[in-house]
Computed example of a mutant assay.
Amino acid sequence: MNTSTLHAVSATLALLLIATFWTSTLVAELLLGADAVVAVKHAIARYGLIALLLTMAATGASGFALGRGRSGRLLDAKKRRMPLLGLNGLLLMIPAALWLDHKAGLGEFDTAFYVVQAVELLVGLLQLTLIGLNVRTGLQLSGRRRPRIPAQES
């Protein structure tokens, strides 16, 4: 598998994993019950995070390799989003997932649980948005999508 394909596949998998975590959490919370919430939190913490970390590492490593020696407005935009994605993941999303799994395992669905759950869902939307923007930019860089031309003022 070449670097470009690895980057595209790993970025797509990361996007799908985060979307799956987000959707599963929302469905469990709103439509199912405590047992489903516990199952979702356990699955994310015990299996999903490992898969996500591997896909994000592959995406980052292949992205750096593809961007080496290149510059430009589109690539610079992707590079500016990456630290925010990484910091959100490492400082907010991973600790929240592990803490929520712990609390759910104890059956402690208290105010703190739901506050952290709400923050995790909001930051998850931010992560989805940032990765989505990077996917769009990657398609533009690869020539598979034309760059959006800003409207000119008359």
Rank of each mutant, 00 (worst) to 15 (best):
Q152D: 12
R145F: 09
L126W: 00
R70E: 14
F21C: 03
T25S: 03
M56Q: 12
T59M: 15
G124H: 00
I131V: 15
L66S: 12
T137I: 10
L92I: 15
T137A: 12
S142G: 11
A11F: 07
K79G: 08
S62D: 07
S24L: 08
R73C: 09
L13H: 04
V9I: 09
I50T: 12
T3F: 13
S154N: 05
D101T: 00
K103M: 04
G132P: 10
R70F: 13
G105V: 02
P83M: 05
V27N: 01
A104L: 01
G72T: 09
G63I: 15
A96D: 12
V40C: 01
Y47Q: 10
L16R: 06
L128K: 00
L121C: 06
A112R: 05
P95S: 02
A58V: 09
L32D: 06
F64L: 15
T12E: 07
D76C: 14
V27S: 02
H7D: 04
L90V: 02
E120R: 03
A8R: 07
Q140H: 10
Q127W: 00
T3A: 14
E120S: 13
G89M: 12
T111F: 07
Q127S: 04
R70T: 15
S142C: 01
L126Q: 00
P150I: 07
L125G: 08
R146T: 15
L52C: 13
S62I: 11
L92W: 04
L139F: 10
L87W: 01
T111M: 13
A65R: 12
T12A: 14
